[in-house]
Nucleic acid binder design. Structure first.
Length: 187
DNA sequence: AATTTGCCCAACCGCAGACTC
DNA sequence: GGAGTCTGCGGTTGGGCAAAT
């Protein structure tokens, strides 16, 4: 049995070889990092478009950082995850040179347990996982939300209904606001 | 030294949304 | 507007490797 061919059998292509990487990179030079099905065919690879896309995004793309996630980055991941939940691509978008896959892996292997342990510690006291502060308007908000406000942004959500996955204000902020990021994670 | 255990992470799968005809 | 296809995302798997026994 070959490497990585056991799971649901046949089309697990296995690890990429240097030759495949080269072929893929050349095809992307010609066609650009889009139309992955075409890129896969043009590269002459026996892999699907999805596989090519993943390889490009996670390895071949220029300006990628690999490994060595700094304390600063870790802190940012923790904070963004608290706000956004498992929206790895959004989180990765705020960490230049990092991929969603890398962040997801890092979370699952390092941070998830760390957070669980911290929460267990805190469980004896306050059960709320996201400490609230008084924003001076008779309404409690999270520290991150308050920080966002302090930069002059309006936050209009109903906390009762808002889970981490449908925070409209946070989505808007993640897409549009650069100043919070620069403030949080100066490069 | 040999075996077991646990962690890391590359790569796949399934699904949903976007796009095209 | 419906069907078919493509793309992107999050969840999951399993091989490799180092540490522990």
């Amino acid at each position: 049995m070959g490497p990585r061919m056991t799971r649901k059998g046949a089309n697990r292509g296995g690890p990429w070889t240097a030759e495949e990487d080269l072929k893929l990179a050349r095809a992307i030079e010609v066609h650009g990092p889009r139309m992955w099905k075409l890129v896969a065919v043009e590269a002459g690879l026996s892999r699907g478009g999805k596989s090519c896309r993943l390889r490009w995004l996670n390895y071949l793309r220029p300006n990628l950082k690999r490994g060595n996630i700094s304390d600063q980055e870790e802190d940012l991941i923790l904070r963004l995850h608290r706000l956004l939940g498992n929206r790895w691509s959004l989180i990765a978008g705020r960490l230049p040179g990092r991929t969603d896959n890398e962040i997801k892996n890092y979370w699952n292997t390092h941070l998830h347990r760390k957070v669980e342990r911290t929460e267990k510690k805190n469980q004896s006291g306050c059960s709320h996982q996201e400490p609230l502060v008084d924003n001076g308007n008779g309404r409690s908000v999270t520290a991150d939300e308050e920080e966002f406000r302090s930069l002059g942004h309006e936050v209009q959500i109903d906390r009762v209904d808002e889970g981490p996955l449908n925070s409209d204000w946070m989505s808007r902020f993640m897409e549009l606001d650069e100043s919070w990021f620069d403030f949080t994670f100066p490069m």
